[in-house]
């Protein structure tokens, strides 16, 4: 198990390097001049030359990339924002808690609704409950977050007045818990639908196997069959999809944060992209990649606990 974790951690390094390389050189190839972004286009040529030298922008791209990687690894220094001149780490640290609480609560909600829905649909295979659940799941997959957000806001907040219209910000002291509900529900919907679909098909797979028939035949109670035999075996694919779902949640948070004006990293990314604030974009890309790699690693480790067979195949893990 330890060896497995270590190889996976080793694989994370090239992933992060590749992402940083890609984003760094995409920025280098783009036609915009960073100095124009730092000083504004109308600044005097002497000032521009000075800033170019101070920020090290007159160095060759490979040297700059190398320095960037070294600074990140040795000092945790991700550079400074072109716009606000503050360190990228401080900038991101402000937005991250908002995104984290949003993504984690949405993942929780998606699992708590998606798994039961899928299980019930599988037990009542081909009944009206199954059809209803799968229609709901298809609608959830086909309705983009940026449609669900205005529609739910219109119905639940504007017309019914049950929930507040806006989002939340952890920086503003006490936060009204009601402001969490809409953003979380909107963000969780698609993932919940994906998890429900997958849980259903995983459960159907397991339920049709011989050992389930054996368990039923020897008189295990129906609920015992369901939880001890079936769900336990279906958990492994569900875990995998929960990991990939987290990726959807992160990209979904871009939309949810801009719609509800929540100052998280999704909102910060869009601002940085429109302002072409490359150091911030790079920092955010690395952070997102890191989170994603980390989540997948955790899923893999949990996989070993849920399904002992996954541990045996350590050698061919990578």
């Amino acid at each position: 198990m330890l060896r497995y974790v270590l190889t996976r951690l080793g694989l994370a390094v090239p992933t992060l390097l590749a992402i940083s390389f890609l984003v760094f050189f995409a920025a280098y190839l783009s036609p915009a001049d960073p100095v124009d972004i730092i000083l504004g286009q109308r600044a005097a040529p002497e000032a521009k030359a000075r800033v170019r030298h101070e920020w090290g922008l007159d160095r060759p791209p490979l040297e700059r990339y190398g320095k960037y990687v070294i600074a990140v690894v040795t000092k945790g220094d991700f550079g400074r924002s072109y716009q606000t001149k503050e360190p990228v780490t401080e900038f991101i640290a402000r937005g991250f808690p908002n995104t984290a609480i949003l993504a984690v609560s949405a993942l929780g909600l998606a699992l708590l609704t998606g798994i039961p829905l899928g299980v019930v649909a599988a037990i009542k295979h081909n009944s009206w409950i199954d059809r209803f659940a799968m229609a709901f799941a298809l609608l959830g997959v086909a309705t983009p977050t940026f449609v669900l957000a205005p529609v739910l806001t219109l119905v639940l907040a504007v017309r019914m007045g049950w929930l507040p219209v806006g989002g939340f910000s952890l920086q503003e002291g006490l936060v009204d818990p009601a402001t969490f509900i809409l953003p979380t529900v909107v963000l969780a919907a698609r993932s919940s639908a994906l998890i429900a679909r997958l849980t259903r098909s995983a459960m159907l797979d397991v339920l049709s196997q011989d050992f389930i028939r054996t368990a039923r035949a020897k008189g295990v109670r129906p609920l015992g069959v369901l939880f001890k035999h079936a769900l336990r075996n279906a958990l492994s694919p569900i875990l995998t999809v929960a990991g990939t779902t987290f990726g959807y949640l992160l990209s979904g948070s871009f939309v949810v944060e801009t719609f509800f004006t929540i100052p998280g990293i999704g909102n910060q990314s869009i601002t940085a992209i429109t302002a072409r604030d490359y150091p911030v974009i790079q920092g955010l890309a690395l952070l997102l990649a890191g989170i994603f790699v980390g989540v997948n690693l955790i899923v893999d480790i949990l996989q070993g606990f849920v399904d002992p067979r996954a541990r045996v195949s350590d050698q061919k893990a990578i």
């Binding site: 590749a18 890609l22 995409a26 783009s30 990314s269 992209i273 997102l288």
Partner: peptide, 27 residues
């Protein structure tokens, strides 16, 4: 396959957002 895994490890829309942002589609 290692290269494929590296790219698979990153949600595609997110990577597209970052790529588009740096390539400067907005302007």
């Amino acid at each position: 396959m290692r290269i494929t895994d590296v790219l698979l490890a990153f949600p595609d829309v997110l990577l597209a957002i970052l790529l588009l942002g740096t390539l400067g589609a907005t302007s």
